[in-house]
Design a protein around this nucleic acid. Structure first.
Lengths: 314, 314
DNA sequence: AACAATTTCGCAAACGTTTGTTGTAAAAAC
DNA sequence: GTTTTTACAACAAACGTTTGCGAAATTGTT
């Protein structure tokens, strides 16, 4: 339309010094008038650089992950990246599909949280081998060749256990998540080291709120004086059982959990929790990704420290 | 590597009848061995068809939107579409950026929820004019040339009010959200029409859970026999006050709310709620999108009807 | 054995960009 | 007046696919 070549237009649009101001102006005006937007597909194809990150998460509808996602998305926007958010539905098949989608879209990097039972990270290793950095978050593999950002799994468990010991509790019902996950192992190990011989601990593993509720209901028969939950998900199930049993918190049973903070504040009294912030973790994950892209590809495990947020439940 | 041309490989991979079974097999085996994944950028560029939808939402960290997103993402996956999820942060500048991103990525369609103050939908109209369908959800424009999917705002209020009247309650504390929002107006108007002269209603407007708690605590002095909350956010605050006051639900006070369903089930007994399902709305939005793409581009406003989900709180 | 029909595949253009190289004026230097 | 520089812009190749068309190889028909 302007009687000039495509390459001149391209350069004009990106303020290349070869192009005269007069031409640049004409080009910009017409581009505006036509509502021109560059085709990112073509750009990525041509430059083989994709400012797109993939994020794989069990579900966006989750109190922890949604804040993680919000944080990452925010940072991506600031840095000119786009985020492809994929749900694995906590199903390893979908997780694989998601990884495939990431590869098909030639993402510049992947944030991923393993599905519950999954210990097979070959797909991710392949990604890494093709030069695509993978940042594992929250549910990370045991493998120590990877880059991982986590909440202070051991640390938060230690704080929680310490609090229970300090309060001189004698019989604790402790609910952990899927025993296959490293997060579970770490929390459990650290937790039990602190409780040690100080008190009797009834350990159970549960996979979802329903199971947590059922297990708790059964375990309450043994009249524990305290309850620890490894996550919000577990807490909601366990509390349901506690409330149904008509127990008073903290007099009949003390409660402490590890949480993002939203759920514990819904109850009365507020449940005391060790804070694990999805938002903070998201920020950390992003900066780690950027460092990786900038060249630092050493395997590492970064930890967001936890703090105890006292409620009235213990 | 196989001594055959690129076009033959392309055809073999998609089971084109021109290609012999023998060749297809060889191609597939090598593709597998090499972990070949087609480059979607190239495909979209070549075919000028993009199986990508954009979704613009104030925040993914939200009880309602997260389930909406989950639903849409799920359906997209089933239909071979990919979802680009963008957060507007309830800021119209970010909203515009998000629309731009959608255009740059040549999305096949956009789902959007307007930011709070926004009444300017020119950008969306432009999108529509370039053949990209736009489905508005939840916070939709007044404009009636658009395609909109919404919850039954009035309908859910009517059901809640009807339930309270039916239970023969006499003094109701009713908490609504920001009176400036159209959703609040619609719900309040419909609600009060149903309650009418049947009972005394103490109406309050609150903007956040803290305010809901404070207002409820004060209003409990007047000993209402029932409590209605317009949203989960309000419910969490109000329930806090109820629990702190040591009231028994439903004996001391009956409770009913409008909700997505997650929060009400945390309490004991379960809070009775009128369901406004982000999940259902997401499914509806998706099918509407697909219909639109299939050719039906008539403006319309679709409503997801609400249903009463009985808990034990009234 | 000659021809037609069929099967199988390669060639080349195109999608919308970017970018190294080359071309051509006009301006500057000699 | 000739050469050199400068400023601007065009050419062409490339990214990884898809696909219409044509060509070669194979098979079938008389």
């Amino acid at each position: 339309m302007l009687g000039i070549s495509i390459s001149t237009v391209s350069r004009a649009l990106k303020d290349h010094p070869d192009i005269s101001d007069k031409t640049k102006l004409r080009v910009r005006e017409l581009a505006d008038a036509l509502d021109y937007e560059p085709n990112t597909n073509a750009i990525h194809l041509r430059t083989s650089k994709n400012n797109l990150f993939g994020l794989i998460v069990p579900s966006v509808a989750n109190f922890f992950y949604d804040s993680f996602i919000a944080a990452v998305e925010e940072e991506c926007r600031k840095s000119g990246y786009t985020l492809l958010i994929l749900q694995s539905g906590d199903d390893s098949r979908s997780e694989q599909d998601s990884v495939k989608l990431c590869r098909q879209n030639r993402v510049a990097g992947v944030f991923t949280c393993l599905t519950s039972g999954n210990t097979n990270i070959d797909l991710y290793k392949k990604l890494k081998n093709t030069g695509v950095p993978v940042i594992f978050f929250d549910k990370v593999p045991d493998d120590n060749e990877e880059i991982k950002v986590c909440m202070a799994d051991a640390g938060s468990a230690i704080i929680a256990a310490g609090t229970i010991v300090e309060k001189n509790k004698k019989k604790l019902l402790a609910l952990f998540g899927n025993p296959g996950l490293s997060i579970t192992k770490k929390r459990e190990k650290a937790f039990l080291e602190v409780t040690g011989n100080n008190l009797q601990v009834l350990v159970h593993h549960v996979d979802n709120p329903e199971e947590a509720k059922a297990v708790t209901a059964a375990a309450l028969q043994q009249q524990p004086d305290s309850l620890f939950c490894m996550s919000d998900e577990i807490l909601t199930g366990a509390m349901k059982a506690v409330l149904e049993a008509g127990l008073k918190v903290p007099d009949d049973i003390a409660v402490i959990t590890i949480s993002n903070g939203f759920i514990p504040k819904l109850y009365h009294p507020d449940i005391t929790y060790v804070e694990t912030s999805g938002y903070k973790l998201g920020k950390l994950a992003f900066t780690t990704m950027m460092e990786n892209i900038a060249g630092d590809q050493a395997p590492k495990e970064l930890i967001v420290e936890s703090v105890l947020v006292p409620g009235g439940s213990i």
